[in-house]
C-alpha cells in the first residue's frame, strides 16, 4: 500500500497528471502556481509600484495604463492585487507549518498518554468553542498587528483541529494488533509512537494541511478586511477590499477583483486538498466530522 500511496501522491509524469487526478485539481495546481510565481516575481510582473499614487487618475476606469483601473488614491489595482498575494501566501504557509507541527506534537502526546490527554483535550475544547475570527482579532488587538502576531493569531485557532485529527488517528491505531505486537517485542513507548503510530497520521495530515492553509488565508483576509490585520500600508487582498468599502457603490470592481483573486486562491487549495484526500484515503470523509 505504501508505494501505491507514494505513486498516487507524486505522479511520475506530469503529462499523465490530468488523466490521473482529474481536470479540476490540474487546473487548480496551475492557478496556484501562477499566483505563487506572481507573488514571488511581483516587481517584474506588476505594471506599477503598488503604493505609487497618481493624483490625476483617481478611481479611473480600466485602461491600457491601468488594466483594472485605479483606487481612490490613484494606485494601480492590478499591481496591488499581484502584490497582495504575498502576505496571504506567507501567512497561509507559515500558519500551516506551525499548526501542523504543533498540532502533531500535541496530538501524538495526547493520544498516547492518558494523563496528558484529559488536560490537553479540555484546553482544545475550550479553544474550539471560541470562533476563530473572534479569537484572532482579540489576540491581534491586544498584541498589536504585525505579520508575526497575525500569524500567531491565525495559527492558534487552527491547532485544535489538527490535534483532534492526530489524536483520533493515534487512538484508533493504537488498538491495532501490530502495536500490541510491538509492545510484546519490548519496543519502548516513544519508539512505538514514532515508528508505528506517527506514520499513520501523514496521509490525513497532508489533506488537513491544505484545509488549514485555505482557512488561514481566509482568516487573514477577514482580519485585514475588518482592519485588524497587518498594517494598512501593506497591500493585502483584505486591506484593498477594506479601503474600497467606502467607494463600493461607485466602483464595485475595487472589491470584486481582489475578492476574485482571494476566492480563486482558496478554491484552488481546497480542490487540491479534495484531490489529495481522494488519492490518499477515500474513506476520510468519515473522519473529518
Amino acid at each position: 500500500m505504501a508505494d501505491k500511496l507514494i505513486r498516487g501522491a507524486f505522479p511520475l509524469s506530469t503529462g499523465k497528471l490530468a488523466a490521473r487526478v482529474g481536470f479540476a485539481p490540474t487546473v487548480s495546481a496551475i492557478v496556484l502556481l501562477l499566483i505563487v510565481l506572481g507573488a514571488i516575481f511581483a516587481p517584474y510582473v506588476a505594471p506599477h509600484d503598488p503604493i505609487m499614487q497618481d493624483p490625476t487618475a483617481r478611481l479611473a476606469a480600466p485602461s491600457a495604463e491601468y488594466p483594472l483601473g485605479t483606487d481612490n488614491y490613484g494606485r494601480d489595482l492590478l499591481s496591488r492585487v499581484i502584490y497582495g498575494a504575498r502576505v496571504s501566501l506567507i501567512i497561509g504557509i507559515g500558519a500551516t507549518l506551525f499548526a501542523v507541527v504543533l498540532g502533531l506534537t500535541i496530538g501524538l502526546v495526547s493520544g498516547f498518554f492518558r494523563l496528558a490527554d484529559a488536560i490537553v483535550m479540555r484546553i482544545m475544547d475550550g479553544l474550539m468553542a471560541i470562533p476563530s475570527v473572534l479569537l484572532a482579532i482579540a489576540i491581534v488587538s491586544l498584541m498589536g498587528a504585525s505579520i508575526w502576531t497575525v500569524m500567531a493569531a491565525i495559527t492558534i485557532p487552527e491547532i485544535p483541529r489538527v490535534v483532534r485529527l492526530v489524536r483520533s488517528i493515534v487512538l484508533s491505531a493504537r488498538e491495532e494488533p501490530y502495536v500490541e505486537a510491538a509492545l510484546s517485542l519490548g519496543t519502548s513507548m516513544p519508539r512505538i509512537l514514532w515508528r508505528h503510530l506517527m506514520p499513520n497520521t501523514f496521509a490525513p495530515l497532508t489533506v488537513q494541511a491544505t484545509y488549514v492553509c485555505a482557512s488561514a488565508i481566509l482568516t487573514e483576509a477577514i482580519l485585514s478586511f475588518l482592519g485588524a490585520g497587518v498594517s494598512t500600508e501593506t497591500p493585502t487582498w483584505g486591506n484593498i477590499m477594506a479601503e474600497a468599502r467606502l467607494y463600493f457603490q461607485l466602483k464595485p470592481s475595487l472589491i470584486l477583483w481582489p475578492g476574485l483573486a482571494l476566492s480563486l486562491c482558496i478554491l484552488s487549495i481546497n480542490l487540491l486538498g479534495d484531490a489529495a484526500r481522494d488519492v490518499l484515503d477515500p474513506r476520510m470523509g468519515k473522519r473529518e466530522a
Binding site: 485555505a214 481566509l218 483576509a221 477577514i222 478586511f225 477590499m241 463600493f248 457603490q249 464595485p252 472589491i255 470584486l256 475578492g259 476574485l260 482571494l262 476566492s263 482558496i266 478554491l267 481546497n270 480542490l271 479534495d274
Partner: peptide, 21 residues
Amino acid sequence: VLGFSVPVFVTGYLLITLFAL
C-alpha cells in the same frame, strides 16, 4: 466547494452588486 472557498464578504458584495445595485 465554492461555498466554503469564497469568503463571506466576497459573497456579500457579489450579492449586493448583483441583486441590490
